[in-house]
Write a protein that binds this DNA or RNA. Structure first.
Lengths: 345, 345
DNA sequence: CTGTTAGCGCTTTCAG
DNA sequence: CTGAAAGCGCTAACAG
C-alpha cells in the first residue's frame, strides 16, 4: 500500500473550527468572504486565517461542488487530438478558463467509436461538468446533450451558440488571389468528410469561381482525407491528370504539406508548374520550400472565445442563436505567386 | 436566463426510490451492484432498473465522488501544448484512463508563470483529482505535490515513479549509425533547456563518440531552443562554421525540420554535404525531402503506461522507485545515408 | 458577532 | 430481503 493521505492528513473546515474554538459556519464565512463576513470580528478573522494557514487548509473541491452545484469543470470534446489545429484550440480554451478558475476536462474522441463517446458524455453530463464545448461534432453529440447543460460549438455555424472562422471566406480569398493573377485553371483539393467547415471551404472555392464567371471543371476537384496521407492521394490524382491545373487551393495544411513535398520530389516546380495555397497556416508552412501561401486560422482565439461564451452561459446568459465568426488572414508567400498581380485600376 | 436543468430535470436516487416505493438504500445497491445486492428480490431489482431507465437516472458525479473519496479524475500537466509530442501523450493517457472510467483533466502550463501553475495544482490537489501525471516538470511541481497524492512522472528518470524513453539510447544509436558509415566529423544540435530528456540526449551523443574513441569538438555542438525557430538558429550556426561536420545529430524533429528546409533552400545537399538524423519521428519526418532518419519515440505508449501506473497507484500499489523505460526504434531513411555501412564481419 | 440547523446526492453499516 | 440512519465536507439561511 502507498501512503497518500496519511503523511499530510488533509485538514477540513471542522479542524480549523475546532482549533480556533469557533463554528464551521463562521470559518466558512471568513474563508469565502461570503455575504455577511464583514460582521465577523477582526480578532476572530485573524485567528481563523492564521489557523487555516497553519493547518494548510484547502477547501475540498468536490464537497464545494456538490453544495454550490457547480464543478468549475468545463469539458472540451475534440474529434482528433492529432489535428495540428487541436493544440491551439486547447490552449485557447484552457487559458480563458483559467482566468476565472475553471479547469479543463479534455475529451479526446480520436479513437472512440461513437456509442462509447456518447456514453462518456452522458456520464459527465450529470453533475460532472458545468458545460461542454464541442469541436466539429454537433451531429454526434448535439442530440445527447440537448438542453441538459450549456454547450458551445466550435468550427460550425449552423448550430448555436458557436464560434467559427470564416471557412468559406478563406478559400474564396485564396481562389481570388489566383484569379487576380490571371490564373483561370484553378483546382481544388478538398475532402469527403462531413464537418461543416470542410463543406464550406469547398463552397468558398466554388463561389469565387462562379463569381468570376469561370465554370468549375469537376475533374479539377479531388477529395481526400484530412491527414498527411491525404496528400499522397492528392499527389497521385494530380499526376494522373491529363490536363493540369495551374493552381491548386488545398483545404488544409496537412494535406498541402504532404502534397508539396511529393510534388517537389517528383520534379514538379512550385509555383512555376503549379501554384499552391492552403488553409490553416500552421507554423511550418512559412518554412516550406517554397514558403506556402495560407489563409491563417485563428485557432487559439477561437478556443478562447468559445470558453468565454461558455462561462457567460454558466453565469446564466442565453446565447441561443449567437454565432461568432472570426476572420481569417491571408498570408501570401512564394508558393502562390506566378506573376505580378493584375494592375489595380 | 437560460434554462438548463429545467427542461430535463435531473432525477435523483430519491426520485426512483419514490417511484418504486422502495428506499434509496435499496435502489443504490441494485444500481451499483454493490456488496449484498444479490439478496434483493429479483422483482424489486427489475422494478428499480426499469424505473431508473424510465426516469433516465444518472448518478450525480460529484456526490458519488464526495462519498467514495475518489473523483475518477486524473490530471495531466504538460509544459507545452504545442510540442508535437504532446498530443500523442495526451492520446495515450486519455485512452488508458477511459478504459477504466477515469477522465482526463488537462493542465496546460504553456503560458503559465510558475507561481500560478503551482497554485492551480494545489487547488486541484485537495479533493479535485485522484492523481497527477507530470510531464517534464518534476522540478517545478514535484515539491508542491510531494506525498499529497499519487504522481507519475513522464519523460524523466531521476524521479519516480516514472515512465520515460531511452533518450540517451536514441542519440547514441543515431551517432553510431553515422560512425558505422565511417563518418567521424559528427556534430550535435541540442538545447540549453533543462529537462532531463534533453541532457540525456546530449549525453548519448557524447557517450557514443567517446566509445568510438573520437574526441568531441565543442565547436561542432550547438544549443538552441526546441521550437521551429531553433532550426533557424542552428542553420545560422552551421553556415558560420569554417569546418563543417559531415553529419549532424539533432535532438528533436522540430528543429531538424526547420534546419533541413533552410539548408536545402541555401543549396546545401542532404545527405551529400551534411547527413541528418533526429529524435522523435513525427509523421511528416518520413515525407521530408529527403526523408529524415529518426529515432522513433513511442509517445502514445508512454502516455498509456503512465496512466496505467497512475491507476495502479490509485488502487493502492506502491510504485516508489519504479522507472519504466521504453525503447526507441531507429528508422533509417535517406537523410542519413552517405555510403553503404561498413561490412558486417 | 456567531452558532445551530438543514441539507447537496450518494453510500454503507446495521437493524429489523 | 429491505429500510433507517449517519455522514462525506461544505454552504446558507436563520436564530440568537
Amino acid at each position: 500500500m502507498n501512503g497518500y493521505g496519511q503523511n499530510e492528513k488533509k485538514s477540513t473546515l471542522k479542524d480549523v473550527a475546532r482549533k480556533v474554538g469557533r463554528s464551521v459556519a463562521t470559518v466558512s464565512m471568513v474563508l469565502n468572504q461570503s455575504a455577511g463576513c464583514e460582521r465577523i470580528s477582526e480578532e476572530t478573522r485573524q485567528l481563523i486565517l492564521a489557523a487555516a494557514e497553519e493547518l494548510n487548509y484547502q477547501p475540498h473541491y468536490m464537497a464545494q461542488a456538490l453544495k454550490k452545484r457547480n464543478t468549475m469543470l468545463v469539458a472540451l470534446a475534440v474529434p482528433n487530438i492529432y489535428h495540428p489545429f487541436t493544440p491551439q484550440l486547447i490552449g485557447g480554451v484552457q487559458d480563458a478558463l483559467r482566468e476565472r478558475g475553471y479547469h479543463l476536462l479534455l475529451l479526446d474522441l480520436t479513437n472512440s467509436p461513437d456509442a462509447e463517446s456518447v456514453r462518456t458524455v452522458l456520464q459527465l453530463e450529470s453533475g460532472g461538468i458545468d458545460g461542454l464545448i464541442i469541436h466539429s461534432m454537433s451531429k454526434e453529440l448535439g442530440p445527447v446533450v440537448d438542453g441538459k447543460l450549456p454547450v458551445v460549438y466550435l468550427d460550425e455555424k449552423s448550430v448555436s451558440p458557436a464560434v467559427w472562422f470564416d471557412a468559406g471566406g478563406a478559400t474564396r480569398t485564396l481562389t481570388q488571389h489566383f484569379l487576380q493573377q490571371g490564373i483561370q485553371k484553378i483546382g481544388y483539393i478538398g475532402t469527403f468528410m462531413e464537418p461543416e467547415t470542410y463543406t464550406e471551404r469547398e463552397k468558398g472555392y466554388r463561389d469565387a469561381m462562379a463569381q468570376a464567371g469561370i465554370p468549375v471543371n469537376e475533374e479539377m476537384i479531388c477529395h481526400v482525407s484530412p491527414q498527411l496521407g491525404g496528400g499522397g492521394k492528392a499527389f497521385a490524382w494530380f499526376q494522373g491528370l491529363k490536363e493540369k491545373p495551374e493552381a491548386l487551393v488545398v483545404f488544409t495544411d496537412n494535406v498541402a504539406h504532404a502534397l508539396m513535398l511529393q510534388l517537389i520530389r517528383a520534379g514538379v516546380r512550385i509555383p512555376e508548374d503549379v501554384a499552391l495555397a492552403s488553409v490553416d497556416d500552421v507554423e511550418i508552412s512559412a518554412l516550406m520550400n517554397p514558403p506556402l501561401t495560407c489563409a491563417w486560422v485563428p485557432a487559439y482565439e477561437m478556443g478562447k472565445r468559445a470558453a468565454y461564451m461558455m462561462m457567460e452561459q454558466i453565469a446564466g446568459k442565453d446565447l441561443t442563436g449567437v454565432v461568432e465568426t472570426l476572420p481569417v488572414e491571408l498570408h501570401i508567400r512564394a508558393s502562390s505567386i506566378r506573376s505580378s498581380p493584375a494592375p489595380n485600376p
